[in-house]
Simulated scan of single mutants.
Amino acid sequence: MNIFRYYGQLENHVTNILMNILALNNGRLIRPFLESLLGAQAAKFDFKENKINLFSAVNPNPNKQFEFILGIAPSTRTNESSKLEEKLDSIPDAWIYGRNYTILVEMKVRGTLDDGQLAAHRKKFTKSAKIIEVTWENVINVLSQLQLQADSIEGYMVTQFLTEFSEMRNRKHSSGMPKEIIGGNSKEDVIHFIISGSRTTGAYTVDLYRADGTIERLHDQMAGIQESRRFIANFVCENHEKIGIDFIDDETIITDRCVKPGRSKDAWNQWRLGSYLREK
């Protein structure tokens, strides 16, 4: 973990800063933060050997007595659904854990928590983890009420975070990650689409990777990644029975792998079919 690392995606950037602050001095702020935020839910936590992991798909502290999914968003929702539980491979924003507890943290700086993503997060636990949803207002109030000396490292960093958070949240969306992207999946043996190209090469190609390992070229003259995804969305609507993809109308999860010539690592993305069908 490194508080000075910059992440282009806002949620990742805010997560990195806040979790690094909580991890200062061997996680000294973790206990007062969780006790204030979760109340009775944290009453029996053993706060010895507290740790934090960022952006890990694997549960670093499995099979503990107390297991929760903590969702942080601008506002809470009235209900949740798990109908997309098998449709998304999830990467949590953070894990906070100690001797007898594990908390998976999912943050949304804008928008709302995603039912399918939370349901997929539940699969990281051996038993059903309870979902707790709080707002950023709750988090900011807890941070503001922590009894910290102004001249301490923790006090200074919390003050800076509180000062900058509102400005960060109100900035325009980064042009890097499209808002339609809801996750990542690097399982190469499942059905997915391959988008290859760059602004330098000009045209982008779209290939279909089938479950049997064969690859079929679908288009070789796309203008960009977003246009390629719109093409894929319409292709799936018309051919989902032939492809053998799990199809649930607009909620269908599509996986693509973006290949850029000269880049050593491909970028995997997941998005819902309806988000690109609705685009004009």
Rank of each mutant, 00 (worst) to 15 (best):
E49H: 15
E49T: 14
E49L: 15
E49Q: 15
E49S: 15
N50V: 07
N50F: 09
N50H: 10
K51G: 11
K51D: 12
K51Y: 09
K51M: 10
K51P: 05
K51Q: 06
K51V: 05
I52D: 05
I52E: 02
I52P: 08
I52W: 03
I52H: 06
I52V: 07
I52F: 13
N53H: 15
L54N: 00
L54M: 12
L54F: 04
L54K: 04
F55I: 07
F55Q: 12
F55Y: 11
S56N: 15
S56K: 15
S56Q: 15
S56H: 15
A57W: 13
A57I: 09
A57Q: 03
A57E: 06
A57R: 07
V58A: 05
V58T: 01
V58C: 04
N59S: 03
P60D: 11
P60Q: 02
P60E: 00
P60C: 06
N61S: 12
N61W: 01
N61V: 13
N61F: 13
N61G: 04
N61C: 06
N61I: 01
P62Q: 04
P62G: 09
N63E: 09
N63F: 03
N63W: 10
N63I: 11
N63Y: 07
K64D: 09
K64A: 10
K64G: 09
K64P: 02
K64N: 11
Q65M: 02
Q65Y: 08
Q65V: 07
Q65A: 13
Q65C: 03
Q65I: 06
F66R: 08
F66Q: 04
E67G: 08
E67H: 06
E67I: 04
E67M: 08
F68G: 03
F68Q: 12
F68M: 09
F68A: 03
I69E: 08
I69F: 01
I69K: 00
I69A: 08
L70W: 02
L70E: 12
L70S: 07
L70K: 07
L70C: 11
L70I: 01
G71S: 10
G71F: 06
G71Q: 02
G71Y: 08
I72W: 09
I72T: 01
I72G: 05
I72R: 08
I72K: 02
A73Y: 01
A73H: 00
A73C: 07
A73N: 09
A73K: 02
A73L: 04
A73V: 08
P74M: 03
P74D: 13
S75P: 13
S75W: 10
S75H: 14
S75N: 14
S75A: 15
S75Y: 14
S75R: 14
T76A: 11
T76Y: 06
T76E: 14
T76W: 06
T76N: 14
T76G: 14
T76R: 14
T76L: 12
R77E: 00
R77L: 08
R77S: 07
R77D: 01
R77C: 07
R77M: 05
R77P: 12
T78G: 10
T78I: 11
T78W: 05
T78Y: 01
T78A: 02
T78P: 09
T78L: 05
N79F: 04
N79G: 00
N79R: 12
N79D: 13
N79Q: 13
E80I: 12
E80V: 11
E80S: 10
E80C: 13
S81R: 03
S81C: 13
S81N: 11
S82Y: 01
S82R: 12
S82A: 14
S82G: 05
S82I: 13
S82H: 11
S82W: 08
S82Q: 12
